[in-house]
Every structure is written in structure tokens, then in C-alpha cells.
């Protein structure tokens, strides 16, 4: 399966995400610089990685969301291509309008960097098909701006339509309704603050993130 990982100035999880995708798909993703205006032909998965794109200037993800490559990502998402945004990638996708809501400074003001418990909210997506609803998994977080915020109507809609993919099983950052990851209305775009690409191999301690990528490959390939 062909895939791409977007690279912004200040991305720092692009390599981790590329390694995770390569391990599961057997094919190294194309690394696509933010100034590109097109994605490689036939890409089935686009990864928007973690990091501090543009030094978090203005707002986390704000500058990256307006970079040339994001127009191509938005076009691909509209055609149904799977898009996975992790951490800063989630912030970029909300700033780009591909996902609703916004990610604000953590309620405790601290940078939170540790493994956390997540509860799976739906198995009805390509990203979560290999998990059971209500299953608890452990995935690391590392962020300063992960406090998910949206108006009550949006939150109700996300919950009502089964678009909350993951919730925190513990207090992490003050996110509305403990939201850790959400899907777009078509289900082909997932944004999440925790880093599944950091829980892939036994050497990482656990492999809870691996099934996310395996589910994607099964759904797309």
C-alpha cells in the first residue's frame, strides 16, 4: 500500500510515524515536504505527524494548516483517502478544518509526557476495527496543547454519531468529555493526541498502537 507522511519545519515524529507505517504495510511512505502542492499518485494513507510545526507560532498547527501541501491533503481526504493526524498532526487537522473543534493549552498548564489509558469509543472505522468498543489500551502522550474544546452541540454530534474514537481513561489535559481522538463525518480522517506509533514493538513496552495500523492496512489494501 502506498502512503505518505507530511513533513513540516519542526515536525519531530515524522520518522517514527514512517517506521510504523513501513513495518505494517511493508512499503516505506513517501516523505512529503510542506511546500509540495501534490501528493504521490495512488496514496491510500496520509500521516500528519507530531512535533512543533513552525514552532507552534500563533497557535499550535495554525501555520502548518495553511501550507501548500494541506490543500492536497484536504482534496485527498475529500476523495476518501485515509488521513491520520497524531498530536501536532491532530492540531493541524483541526486548524485546517478537516476535523471540528480546537486543541487548547492543557488545563494544568503542564507539558504531559507519559503513558496513559485510553478507552476505545468505536470499532466502526478503518482506524479502530481491530479494537473492541470499551477496550482499554495504553498509549503514550507528549503534548502541551491537547485540551480538546468544541461547543456542546458539536460534542453531542461527535458522540451521537460514534465519532469519538478514543477517550482518556484518566485525567490528562482537561479535554471536553475526555476526548483523546475523533473521526470526521465520513470516518476516513482520524485525529488523536496520543502516539500509537510509539507502541508498536515489544521493545516499546507494549504493542497497543500496532492494531490501529493493521486495521488501516486491512481496510485499505
Amino acid at each position: 500500500m502506498k502512503s505518505a507522511v507530511i513533513v513540516f519545519p519542526g515536525s519531530n515524529c515524522d520518522r517514527d510515524l514512517a517506521v510504523a507505517i513501513r513495518d505494517v504495510t511493508g512499503e516505506a511512505p513517501a516523505m512529503v515536504w510542506h511546500r509540495e502542492t501534490e501528493l504521490p499518485e495512488g496514496v491510500g494513507l496520509i500521516g500528519v505527524p507530531g512535533g512543533f510545526s513552525y514552532g507552534d507560532y500563533l497557535r499550535a498547527g495554525a501555520m502548518a494548516a495553511r501550507s501548500p501541501v494541506m490543500r492536497a491533503v484536504a482534496d485527498a481526504a475529500a476523495r476518501g483517502v485515509a488521513v491520520l493526524g497524531v498530536c501536532n498532526g491532530f492540531q493541524v487537522l483541526t486548524e485546517a478544518g478537516l476535523l471540528p473543534g480546537a486543541l487548547m493549552r492543557n488545563a494544568g498548564l503542564n507539558f504531559v509526557c507519559r503513558d496513559v489509558t485510553l478507552t476505545v469509543g468505536t470499532s466502526q472505522s478503518a482506524f479502530t476495527s481491530r479494537y473492541e468498543v470499551g477496550e482499554e489500551i495504553r498509549i503514550p502522550v507528549a503534548h502541551h496543547d491537547g485540551n480538546y474544546t468544541a461547543d456542546a452541540e458539536t460534542l453531542d454530534r461527535l458522540e451521537g454519531e460514534g465519532r469519538v474514537a478514543f477517550r482518556y481513561g484518566e485525567q490528562v489535559n482537561g479535554s471536553a468529555r475526555d476526548i483523546a481522538g475523533i473521526l470526521n463525518d465520513a470516518g476516513n480522517v482520524l485525529g488523536m493526541m496520543p502516539h500509537p506509533e510509539r507502541m508498536m514493538e515489544p521493545a516499546h513496552g507494549r504493542t497497543d498502537g500496532r492494531r490501529l495500523f493493521e486495521g488501516l492496512v486491512a481496510a485499505i489494501a
Binding site: 497557535r59 495553511r66 483541526t94 471540528p100 473543534g101 480546537a102 461547543d151
Partner: peptide
Amino acid sequence: RKLLANTVI
């Protein structure tokens, strides 16, 4: 609207 403010928040 396009950049300087995030009108969600």
C-alpha cells in the same frame, strides 16, 4: 477569519 484568530475558540 482565515488565519489570525481561530473562531472556534
